[in-house]
Amino acid sequence: MLKMDFRYLLLSVCLVSGNAFAAAIGMPEQAGRWGYSLGVAYATVDDPDAATRHDWALRPLNLVYTDTWRYDTRYWGELFYQESALDAAPGKIGQESRQLGARLSLQKSVLLSPAIVPWLGVGLQLSYDQFQKRHTVDSDGYLIGTYPDRDGLHATLLLNMVLERRISRDWGGALKLEQAVPLAEGVSELVISAVLLYRY
């Protein structure tokens, strides 16, 4: 049921027009680019009760908007919904995490060579996170005990790098490498994403 609640919330966000979203973040809509990214993350949870494993998770639902702020600086925003499933191990809590939130980074282009001009950025992520099915197991995989579900609004520091390549006049592609470091009790992850961008 909680998973469905997330979907309705995301759906309601999605049904707001792109113009309204662009306006909401204060940018002229014509100059920006929309995009969709698909990524994989090597994630773990900063759990207050014990450590958790690192595990791979798909990051398929990310909507991107980016636009120039100054001549070599831009902002990069995302709306996302993502889930992670971390198996338990001896001494490590297994759990499912669900996150609905937004990311905003400021990125600066850095000229490494005429052919390689990555965008390096820092940003902040705000997300509503749910952690469920929290439990521990013994060395044979049997359940030792369970912990209460927890949820909350969490802030996460972002460090990212984007390599972009124009495909056509309006379409472009990018690879994004991002490290998310929660400020407290969130999801820590290293994400690599492929992004498709469209200038409208």
């Binding site: 998973k3 998770a57 798909l58 398929p60 639902l61 919904y81 993502q82 889930e83 992670s84 499933a85 971390l86 198996d87 338990a88 297994g94 759990q95 499912e96 099915k133 439990h135 197991v137 013994d138 044979d140 995989g141 049997y142 359940l143 369970t146």
Partner: peptide, 15 residues
């Protein structure tokens, strides 16, 4: 049924 590619965590049974 959930995010594509995601997997659920199954809480194992007690020993």
């Amino acid at each position: 049924n959930g995010v594509p590619g995601s997997s659920d965590v199954d809480i194992p049974s007690q020993r």
